[in-house]
């Protein structure tokens, strides 16, 4: 095929994002992605459960480094993601407009809101400890300190309708607190998510911290919900029936589950999505006071 100016058109091959690399699906399958009017846009990889397994391995491998990084550094890296998004704004506006059937102006507003949301969560990385941790008064000569720690590998079932703002709103809080994520992109609108992978790959986010899979939500989510090495699952994009099945499967190793709930993605997100995937570590430390008999220094 060629354009009117005689150039061959260059089609983009959308790929998965696993462990910092861009593989095709292990199964070799793809499926057709259409725009809101039903016109063909591109082929996206149709992930299998083995892709999901590989993504968990990558996320687990990345967890130590990401959780161990300072909150300040995580904030810097997430802010860098926002910078990169800003540079590729036009591409995302086009993809969001096509996927969700929005006008260019409305899609632009959605992308701006999504970039602002990255910045919002980037700011929270080194502040969340102040609002959910702190010193506890105890009846004894101890400092008693609680601090939030990331849960581990989190499966994120991204919202089906809001392919970009919704995705950012569920993904950013998960990684901001130090978790690593396996994201299942919107089934019918996966392209903005797959393009986001390219941004993540070029903005200092270590490989494996975010892994993005496209395909049939139920097919990928089921083995992930039952996977013994996944610590939590966010069911934002699962319908009621699927959410119930996944929650049952997730009970087997006591995964933390965030149930789907009606959300206005454009509203102020608050901290409600930051806290579900945190554990609290409490440390008792002697104050050093030996009582009346001890030294006074």
């Amino acid at each position: 095929m060629s354009d009117s100016n005689g150039r061959l058109s260059v089609f983009k091959t959308y790929k998965l994002y696993v462990g910092g690399k861009f593989p095709r699906s292990e199964s070799g399958r793809v499926y057709e992605v259409n725009d809101a009017k039903g016109n063909w846009l591109a082929n996206a990889p149709l992930s299998s459960r083995k892709d999901a397994r590989d993504a968990v391995v990558a996320a687990r491998k990345a967890f130590g480094g990401w959780a161990g990084a300072t909150a300040y550094l995580r904030g810097q890296i997430l802010y860098r993601v926002a910078e990169m998004l800003e540079g590729r704004r036009e591409q995302f506006v086009r993809e969001v407009a096509e996927a969700e059937g929005l006008s260019k102006a409305k899609a632009g507003a959605v992308v701006d809101a999504a970039i602002d949301r990255w910045v919002w969560y980037a700011g929270w990385t080194d502040k969340i400890a102040q609002i959910v941790g702190g010193g506890n008064p105890v009846a004894g000569p101890f400092f008693n300190l609680s601090s939030p720690e990331p849960t581990g590998v989190v499966t994120v079932v991204a919202p089906q309708d809001s392919s970009f703002l919704g995705l950012v709103s569920v993904l950013a809080p998960v990684i901001a607190t130090g978790n690593t994520a396996v994201v299942i992109a919107s089934e019918d609108r996966p392209l903005p998510a797959l393009s986001l992978a390219e941004v993540l790959a070029t903005s200092d986010v270590p490989g494996g911290v975010v892994n993005i899979l496209s395909g049939k939500t139920a097919e990928i989510a089921t083995p992930l919900a039952a996977h013994q090495d996944v610590n939590a699952i966010d069911l934002a994009g699962a319908d009621a029936q699927l959410a119930k099945e996944l929650e049952i499967a997730a009970a087997d190793n006591l995964k933390r589950v965030l149930r789907p709930q009606p959300v206005d993605w454009s509203a102020d997100p608050g901290t409600s999505r930051l806290t579900p995937f945190l554990e609290t570590k409490t440390v008792w430390h002697p104050t050093g006071s030996l009582g009346s008999g001890g030294s006074s220094y």
Partner: peptide, 9 residues
């Protein structure tokens, strides 16, 4: 079991 196991087990 049919489900993926993990190093915790």
């Amino acid at each position: 079991t049919g489900r993926y196991s993990g190093p915790d087990y």
